[in-house]
């Protein structure tokens, strides 16, 4: 029995019932830019980087399901321009100083911005004031880099059963909080799934920063698109 298929930028992609467009694309080793989507978790659908045109209609490919023979466009200038603008929004919303970030070279936000040729943040910066949380003996939280993907919220709640993280506030004041006055007072541990899902540099293991030399870091070696899963 043949699986139904759709075409993605001219390539035929098979899919199974219940799969989303991006899941089918990843299974076929085709890259669609994304940030809040992680194949191990239920799609959040918030970053909108993975927006594609499905039969001409724009939709987030992490939540939309393909239909047989659907025509999906992803790697086209119109969408890549929009994705770049979304990335620029994320860069000006927080404080993203790559040169001093331990995740530089292994950060999905940065690697995706490279992929989409983002030469500048373009917009005016918000320069928010977001204090660090260094209370935990093993881990540091640098909220300056949070893109509100809520993967840590999901991981801690659904995998670790701990509910260490949550989103608070509204609109441009949305922010990540922990389930106590500081991280050290929660049950957070380095063994938690939540410690390993941050696509940017918010949840950082202490004393291991910058151990991988420049030139050998994850995305120094290959662009994010070449790591087909894009993680």
């Amino acid at each position: 029995m043949n699986n139904p298929t759709f075409t993605l930028d001219g390539k035929t992609i098979p899919f199974t019932e219940g799969q989303t467009i991006i899941q089918a694309a990843i299974a076929a080793s085709v890259y669609i830019p994304h940030l809040c989507f992680n194949p191990e978790f239920k799609a959040h659908g918030s970053c909108k980087l993975c927006t594609v045109k499905a039969n001409g209609r724009k939709t987030a490919s992490c939540t939309a399901q393909p239909q047989p023979d659907m025509i999906v466009e992803s790697n086209i200038q119109e969408l890549n321009d929009e994705r770049r603008a979304l990335l620029q929004m994320l860069f000006v919303e927080g404080n993203h100083f790559c040169p001093s970030c331990e995740m530089s070279g292994q950060c999905q936000l940065q690697a995706t911005a490279y992929e989409l040729n983002m030469m500048s943040p373009h917009f005016d910066h918000f320069f928010p004031d977001r204090p660090l949380d260094a209370s935990h003996p093993e881990y540091l939280l640098d909220f300056n880099r949070c893109i509100l993907c809520s993967l840590c919220v999901q991981a801690s709640r659904d995998v670790d059963g701990k509910n260490v993280f949550a989103l608070a506030g509204r609109g441009i004041n949305s922010h990540l909080i922990v389930n106590a006055s500081q991280l050290a007072e929660t049950g957070f541990s380095g063994d938690d799934k939540a410690a390993h899902v941050c696509p940017v540099g918010v949840i950082l293991k202490k004393r291991v920063g910058f151990v991988v030399p420049v030139g050998q870091r994850k995305y120094d070696l290959l662009p994010i698109s070449a790591l087909a899963k894009g993680d």
Binding site: S46, C47, K48, L86, M89, L90, E93, I147, R170, G171
Partner: peptide
């Protein structure tokens, strides 16, 4: 709109504030 954006998605969360600025 900037005041009422829920903050879930990037374009509305950041875009409505950029637009009002």
């Amino acid at each position: 709109f900037a005041h009422e954006s829920c903050g879930f998605c990037t374009p509305c969360r950041v875009g409505t504030s950029l637009l009002s600025n």
